[in-house]
Amino acid sequence: MNPPPVRQARSALSLWGERAIEWIIRLCGISAVIFVFSIFLFVFLEGAPLIPDLNWIQVIFSPEWYPTSRSNVRYGVGAMIIGTLSVTGLAMLFAVPFGLGAAVFVSEFCGGRLKETLKVVIEMLAAIPSIVWGFIGLSVMNHLIQTWLPAPVGLNLFNAALLLALMSVPIIVSIGEDALKAVPDSYREAALALGATRWQTVYRVLLPAARNGLLAAVLLGVGRAIGETMAVLMATGHAVNIPTSLFDPIRTLTATIAAELGETAVGSPHYRMLFLIGLMLFSITFVVNLLADLAVRGVRRQ
């Protein structure tokens, strides 16, 4: 006996609609790849015509940044690279111990309501816009540093590093806490059963076990600090200068672009140079994020 004919339940229109939607979803799926690629492409294309005219050794190592000089234009970003590295390094000196310490405290030393509250507070800390941080650096910290510390100017390396530390700490805490949470509870139970205190469990068992995740947390914090623009523009003093002390004004790569792009003519060499600095920043943060991703992947494999 023949089976009864299957009735087509859905109209052709609905089937085609579904197929169209699935294609749109696929397109959106690769959108992130398209955007990363086009960011690289557009920044590169705007900067590229200047590349043959530059002496790269001089660009990277020379501290002489005179992009608008009439007689002798020089594009040396050495001082800004050192500025970016020093402010990021100093910020991490504050942020890494405090961030990881806070992550350990939130994850292991408190529970219940206190934990939830602290997580919310940290989320709020992360939500403060960078322009507000910059304003705090300019108005509050500037004043405090001049009053309490032996510094001739309040807008300097130290000021900006403190701001950057406060800005990157929330990332380090939340990713670090995730990394600690990913350690199986059986590790903790085994340590406790042997009579270890919580602190012994943390530094003998959890920190080694969550090593990769904590490294990723630190790297993402570094990435955030390198790319930060408005806060460092307002708080560093913005002087092209190789710092010799904590209280010297400096200038970073990001702040240079933000401060000068508005004053350059589209297509001029100075404009193209700023895009090349952007390309450097893109490459640096790309590598840092790639390393962080590899570290996280290492965690998953375990």
């Binding site: 992130a32 955007f35 990363v36 960011i39 920044v43 960078s130 993402l220 990435g223 955030r224 390198i226 790319g227 930060e228 623009t229 990001t254 672009i257 933000a258 952007g278 920043l281 893109f282 943060t285 790309f286 840092v288 994020n289 790639l290 962080a292 991703d293």
Partner: peptide, 11 residues
């Protein structure tokens, strides 16, 4: 996605 999240705002 990870890298897009890390691109500096000025870029």
């Amino acid at each position: 996605v990870v890298n897009l999240a890390g691109v500096p705002s000025i870029v």
